[in-house]
Computed example of a mutant assay.
Amino acid sequence: MTTSTRAALLVCPASGKGRAARVAGTVAARLRTAVDHLDLHVASSAEGTAAAARRAVADGVDVLVVLGGDGGAHLAVQACAGTSTALAVVPAGTGNDLATALDTTSADDVVDALRAGSRRSLDLGRVRGGPWFATVLCAGFDSAVNERANAMRWPAGPRRYDLAILAELAALRAEHLVVETEDGVVELDALLVAVGNTTSYGGGIPVCPGASTSDGLFDLTVVGAAPRRTLLRMLPTLRTGRHVDHPEVRTFRARSVRLSGPSWVAYADGERLREVPLDVECVPGALTAVCGPLSGAG
């Protein structure tokens, strides 16, 4: 250890269908080899996770380590943003997009980064009158899939999302979207919009492939009105980031964005926010994060 470090480990036991709970002891033991003191917090609900994160930051820990998925990381971001407490993420959820962006894809990655003192400042998005977000805010087709899947009680696992996608494709229709940035106003019929602070959401889908957490700007991806057959052909290209080359896709960069028009619900970091309209701002350097050696633009 190069410096004295006091850390807190926040365990989200339900993450990854219980994986976080199963590995918590091992992760805590590994972390204790890289810090001088480790407090342990276990929360069984979103409210408990948020409260534990706030308590840890108020207690003045140097690092708050989250063992969980993007939902737990999102709650920890609310506590760490704008403070001197650094956030680290040990991935144990289903998506883990923030951990991937930080290049901490295992407990060993976090331990190595703590020993090396590897930290950097990250931009965050902030919804006016609402929360911070670290990865991607989306609305439209993709958020509708989330809404439908969350309302379904059967089946469990990935098949729930497969069925939700099919149902939303059947009901798909474009709506009139207004995108206002510092550079002007764009109006178009659209199927979805993504506001990216990092590149990816949904477990590694690079919806905003050029996004950077250190340029003070969001990357926006807007999919315009297109027939279902066109969208079906486009969906596989989302996995490679090549969707931005499609003529129905428009991309922008902006410091602040207002989305209005459609009756869409917005999600950020995979968490439900509220219906459009909403205003979001990119806040440079709002978060200090523990990062692996490959973390950078994403």
Rank of each mutant, 00 (worst) to 15 (best):
L220N: 05
A211R: 04
L137N: 13
E147T: 14
P206M: 04
G129K: 08
G203R: 02
R128K: 07
L124C: 07
S121M: 10
A86R: 12
G216E: 06
L122Y: 10
S200H: 11
F141A: 04
E187T: 11
A149W: 00
A190M: 12
A194D: 10
L166F: 12
M152D: 01
D112T: 15
G140W: 07
T199Y: 00
A86H: 08
F133I: 13
G125M: 07
D183E: 11
G130F: 02
D112K: 05
A149N: 02
Y161V: 04
S84Y: 01
A86L: 11
A211K: 06
D112I: 01
T198R: 13
L87D: 13
V223R: 11
R159V: 12
L192Y: 14
A194K: 11
A151I: 00
V185F: 00
N197R: 12
T100A: 11
S118D: 02
D97Q: 07
E182M: 08
L192Q: 12
R128Q: 12
P131L: 04
A88P: 14
G210L: 03
A149R: 00
G117Q: 02
L98M: 13
A156K: 03
T94N: 08
A149T: 03
G184L: 04
Y201G: 07
D142Y: 12
E180G: 00
V145P: 09
Y201S: 07
V178R: 15
A226H: 11
A107K: 09
L163H: 12
V127T: 12
G117E: 03
A167Q: 14
D97C: 04
S118P: 00
E180C: 01
V223S: 05
L102D: 11
R153C: 00
D103A: 14
L166R: 14
V207S: 09
R120V: 06
Y161G: 03
E168D: 08
P158F: 06
R159F: 14
V145K: 03
A81F: 04
A211T: 11
A139V: 09
A99T: 03
P206L: 04
G117W: 03
D112M: 00
W154I: 01
A156Q: 03
L122F: 11
A99Q: 06
N197Y: 09
F133T: 13
G210T: 05
S121A: 15
G95N: 10
D109A: 15
T135H: 08
D183Q: 10
S143Y: 10
E175N: 10
D123E: 06
L166D: 11
A151P: 02
E180T: 15
D189M: 13
D103P: 10
G95A: 15
G157K: 01
P158C: 01
D219N: 09
L169F: 14
E182C: 06
D97L: 05
L137H: 13
A116H: 02
